[in-house]
């Protein structure tokens, strides 16, 4: 059995115009020890998905349907105290601006010790201090500085302190929401490297949520590409990068510059994601897809399974023969741009 099984999950937000379908029928599994990346543009539902899993949706958000099975428990049906027990101990989250979520009036040590003692009553002070020292060393911070206050740390150090805190109880699942986006590239590289080695040590799995395709390419085993609340494509990282079937994956990949290549022809995916209050019928990407037909606009695509990939595109079975070369041309996307971009938004 997989460690985490999300099935047909629907997460909606209450809005004045009706419910916004932020996550709409998402299913996936995560094995113990696996790293799964979730990529997509802002508003595609990737952060909402993580918040639904750990149970910290904002007041307007609710789970409309579906289940989240974690090590045999359905998280959507747990009571608040049961859920609170799981948080930090089994599932921890490293948020994008985690470095700003430390309490300024307590030392870092006090904050980590508090988390340990809340979840493991009876842990002695000496033992807690040992955990703090160990975690500080793991994330590359000097343990002597554990008695500093957050303002005495730089941004990168605070983010590392948060990661130390997220790891202190050796959770079996980590949700990392843009864990390094706020950091400089050297710090990002160090932190990702450390998270990787810690994971190996405690054999935890990780869900990495990011817009940065290159971070996913380097840290994940599998990738989910999300678009407008739905999965567009899912599969092993090599296949997603080498032979994607969904035009959105192809576009996203080609929109991203690679430092190892000179003279890249970057492409831009014209238009904007659809409104989630009243999403269009058919494929959600149809409006921006240079290959869309009437069928795409009317009929919602079923999953197409090939080469270990799950792709939601009507023409996934034809992409190999005809569509991929066409989709790989930046000219293709430019023509769509001329037709749709620049127009006044409705």
């Amino acid at each position: 059995m997989s460690q985490l099984e999300v099935e047909d999950l629907e997460v909606y937000y209450e809005t004045e115009e009706g419910p916004a379908q932020a996550v709409d029928g998402v299913s996936f599994e995560l094995e113990q020890g696996e790293n799964l990346g979730i990529v997509g543009e802002s508003g595609c539902g990737k952060t909402t998905l993580a918040k639904a899993i750990i149970g910290i949706l904002p007041d307007a958000g609710y789970i409309n349907n579906g289940s989240i099975n974690f090590q045999g428990d359905d998280l959507t049906e747990l009571s608040e105290p049961e859920r609170r027990r799981l948080k930090w101990e089994e599932i921890s989250m490293i948020a994008q601006s985690a470095m700003n979520s430390l309490d300024p009036v307590y030392t870092i040590r006090e904050q980590i010790v508090e988390a340990i003692e809340t979840h493991r009553p009876g842990t002695g002070r000496v033992e807690s201090d040992e955990i703090v020292t160990e975690m500080f060393e793991l994330v590359g911070l000097d343990p002597e500085r554990a008695d500093d206050y957050p303002h005495q740390f730089s941004g990168g150090m605070r983010q590392r302190a948060m990661i130390a805190m997220a790891l202190a109880l050796e959770p079996s699942l980590m949700l990392a929401d843009e864990p390094t986006t706020a950091l400089d590239v050297i710090m990002q590289d160090q932190i990702l490297k450390r998270i990787g080695s810690i994971q190996e040590e405690i054999n935890s799995s990780m869900l990495v949520i990011t817009h940065d395709v290159s971070v996913v390419a380097e840290t994940c085993d599998r990738v989910i590409v999300m678009y407008a609340g739905k999965i567009a494509e899912e599969g092993p990282v090599e296949e997603i990068f080498n032979q994607p079937y969904h035009p959105y994956t192809i576009g996203l990949k080609r929109a991203f510059p690679n430092i190892r290549e000179s003279d890249q022809d970057l492409l831009s995916i014209a238009g904007y994601p659809p409104e989630l209050v009243d999403p269009p019928q058919g494929c959600r990407f149809a409006e921006r897809c240079p290959m869309a037909t009437d069928r795409c606009r009317e009929e919602e695509p079923e999953a197409h399974y090939e080469n270990g990939l799950r792709s939601y595109c009507h023409y996934a079975d034809e992409i190999d023969t005809e569509l991929r070369p066409y989709a790989d041309e930046s000219e293709t996307w430019r023509q769509t741009a001329a037709a749709t971009d620049g127009g006044v938004e409705e």
């Binding site: 395709v213 080498n242 690679n258």
Partner: peptide, 23 residues
């Protein structure tokens, strides 16, 4: 060090990581 730390959007490229000390 700076260029070495830039992640590459290609899982086939195995980037060697050299850690830069200090801040």
């Amino acid at each position: 060090s700076l260029i070495n730390a830039v992640p590459v959007p290609d899982p086939a490229v195995g980037r060697e990581r050299v850690e830069l000390q200090g801040e």
